[in-house]
Amino acid sequence: MVELKQTSPCAGLLPVTLGDVTMSELTPGQMTCLTAFGDPADLSAALERAHGMALPGPNRSSGKQGARCIWFGRGDVLLIGPAPDAALGAHAAVVDLSDAWATVSLKGAGAVDVLARLVPLDLREGHFKRGHTARSQVMHMQASVTRLASDEFMIMVFRSMAGTLVHDMKQAMAAVASRR
């Protein structure tokens, strides 16, 4: 049997620093999509009991670093970090997506300017605060964007597009850095 070696989606590509912005890969652990069968309030209560955070509403996230839950589209949330408690299975479809998404952090004072070149959303802090999340696009890739801190974003794209993500982000980072 061939010995297969486990690698992360952006292995060998990151971290990259251009100007005051650093892009690095996040390895957030297990990622699980939860889709409520019935009343989302039941799933929220189960999530609160099992992992200590409520079910986030549209465009919001809950929890904190290490155990986070982000809204992930109509009817879906993504539990990031802990292995999902078995009790969640009674209220929601529980699907492991750990290997399906590439997750990067974009950190620095210019991070918001970099994303302004790639994402068709107003991500400035007055409008897109810490804990806010959005499903949108990075260039032409479907993506999830979450503000982790005043100068840090988490960006997720399909794993197969990790190379394109790094390429597009580096170009935007270089353009922003050259204007500072």
Binding site: A134, R135, S136, Q137
Partner: peptide, 12 residues
């Protein structure tokens, strides 16, 4: 009246 999908967003 038309059907559109928000495929680059929430998927609805």
């Amino acid at each position: 009246r038309e059907l559109w999908q928000h495929d680059g967003g929430c998927g609805a």
